[in-house]
Amino acid sequence: MRLLLALTLLALSGLTQAAIQTQEIPYESADGTKMIGYYAFDDAIKGPRPGIVVVHEFWGLNDYAKRRARDLAGLGYSALAIDMYGGGKNTEHPKDAMAFMQEVSKNSAVASARFQAGLDLLRKQPQTDPNKLAAIGYCFGGGVVLNAARQGLPLAGVVSFHGALTTNTPATPGSVKAKILVEHGARDSMVTAQNVTAFKAEMDKAGADYKFVSLADAKHGFTNPDADRLSHGDHGGPDIGYNKAADESSWKDMQAFFKKIFG
């Protein structure tokens, strides 16, 4: 009897896992860049559900960003990991990653257009409720979603994980429509205390609805289990590191945040 029960539970577990559907979807930005999105949803859920854009770290659209899309699908969302660099390219070499990031970041209009293209693609998916949209981003992607909020895009909320806080186009009073959650590592050497102070002052001046969480002992990249490995090597990796407690705490904060804004 116990064996039968165990086999039944195992079978049910397998069915649940198989319910997460994924696919790569080609799309194009207004600047003509051909991109590849990674879409995930739970087909056991019927009807449209809130849609969430996932914006990758400066490494590019890698397995980590795709995993987060699957994680969100498992929570009941329609999730799309978008491609900010084009062609789905990614790297583990920091110099290459920096070059990819700078190429996009040097022109804010290009970066905005590429995010918008991803958001439009997510909105078109039959599993997505087009009236309930949000975005999360990591590192470089955190800065991207914060800029989307600054621009007043039709997002219910954005979440930045160890993201860039500075911008060339600061928010203005009333421009920020989305609610904002920032999950920041207290030991992040890439985001200075001055950056944090300036960001909070910017948000306060703009009248934004935001929450800033500082996570003790967490460095840049604290959510990514590969961060420790990527911080070493003959290429001289960046000052990043995984922090399990901060990763789990920030993910719980995100879940509570989305539950609040989506109901």
Results as ranks from 00 to 15, higher is better:
D71E: 14
A164Q: 14
L153G: 01
L61N: 03
Y85G: 07
D120V: 05
A109F: 13
A186E: 09
P126T: 11
K46E: 15
L75D: 14
A218L: 05
A201H: 12
C139R: 07
D120C: 10
L7W: 04
G118F: 01
S231V: 03
V110Q: 11
G263P: 05
A81G: 01
G118K: 02
K200N: 14
I36F: 04
T169M: 09
A156Q: 14
L12M: 08
I240L: 08
L61S: 10
H56A: 03
S13Q: 09
V55F: 02
I25F: 03
H235F: 15
L133T: 09
A216W: 07
Q125S: 04
R67P: 08
A227S: 14
Q116V: 12
A19S: 06
D42I: 11
F161R: 03
A81P: 08
A206G: 04
G157Q: 05
E24V: 10
W59H: 07
T192Q: 03
F140T: 09
A40N: 00
H162T: 01
I261R: 15
A11Q: 12
S13Y: 12
A18L: 03
I36A: 07
K260P: 01
M98C: 10
Q255A: 12
E248Q: 14
L15Y: 07
A6V: 11
I52C: 01
P173A: 02
N90C: 11
K244R: 15
G74M: 09
N107I: 00
A69E: 04
F100C: 04
F58M: 14
K179M: 08
L12E: 03
R68S: 03
S175H: 00
D42N: 13
Q194L: 07
E202M: 10
I36H: 02
N224V: 01
L9I: 10
M101V: 06
A201V: 08
E248V: 03
N243H: 06
A109T: 14
E92Q: 12
I20A: 04
M101K: 13
V55G: 00
A134I: 08
A186C: 00
H235E: 15
A134W: 12
A11S: 11
V54N: 02
N168A: 14
A246Q: 02
A164M: 06
A109I: 11
A208Q: 00
N131F: 11
A69D: 04
F257G: 01
A19Q: 10
T8M: 15
D188S: 00
L122N: 07
A148H: 08
N168Y: 10
A135T: 02
P173I: 07
K124N: 12
A208T: 05
Y64D: 06
S13H: 14
K211N: 15
H56L: 01
K89N: 13
H235W: 15
T197N: 11
